[in-house]
Amino acid sequence: MEGHPYGYNIPISEKTKSVPWEEKVRVIEEVKSDFRYEEFLFGCLNCGVCTASCPSNRFFDYSPREIVQRFLEEDIEVLYDMMHEYIWACSQCFTCWIRCPFVNNPGGLVIIMREVAVRNAFEATKDLLKPYGRVLLKVMSTGNQLSADMLQPDFFPDWGPKMLDNMENVRAKRMAVPFDVGKAVKTAWEVSLETAVEMYHIWRETGIFEMLEKLDPNLYNVIMDIVEENEERWEELMEEEEEE
């Protein structure tokens, strides 16, 4: 039987098999060196309560117990393989965390693994996050994840006929929202320029732009155009105000 004898029944991919052992060790060590790792993993009874209450487990081949067990057994091969697609099934609800008698946080381990997967720009991660580009563009350039103009009925036909009605004449409807900062269409609320510029500084200093460049160079370029334009506008405004 292919797969892991203790329950990870997904065959290890040929791609994982072809990666040099040292590289796999390096990636898993990157996960384990995160300061949160020791705060998220304590021990495991193998009771399975995490998996029994996991929403993703009901519809995907995914088990938080497997994540915990593989780390405790230091199963480099399986962990490395998991980092390509397996971990993206997690819903990040943290039901596993509140239920675990050991207070393990499998959802927390997954978020470290995802972060490392993005930082290392795995091909599977790039493919998986492609449809998510619109969100990344919005959040990185404005600090808002969602806006009225993103909810176009064409993208969400499964949300039903009321959705069509909702989005008709959306600009006027947003204008009628009874608080000023909520009248925006392209952002959830209106964000001041200085706030956006401060956020760009945070992205730059913490390596987030670098992460994006590796993940999707085209998207990165589009984001950087907006960032640079807003930064220039801000500088000009500052100069104008000084003159005034």
């Binding site: 990040q92 972060e115 997967a117 996050l129 969602l146």
Partner: peptide, 13 residues
């Protein structure tokens, strides 16, 4: 929301 969805951030950010 973005971090939990895509992993494109980190604890310092």
């Amino acid at each position: 929301w973005n971090y939990h969805g895509s992993g494109t951030s980190n604890p310092v950010a």
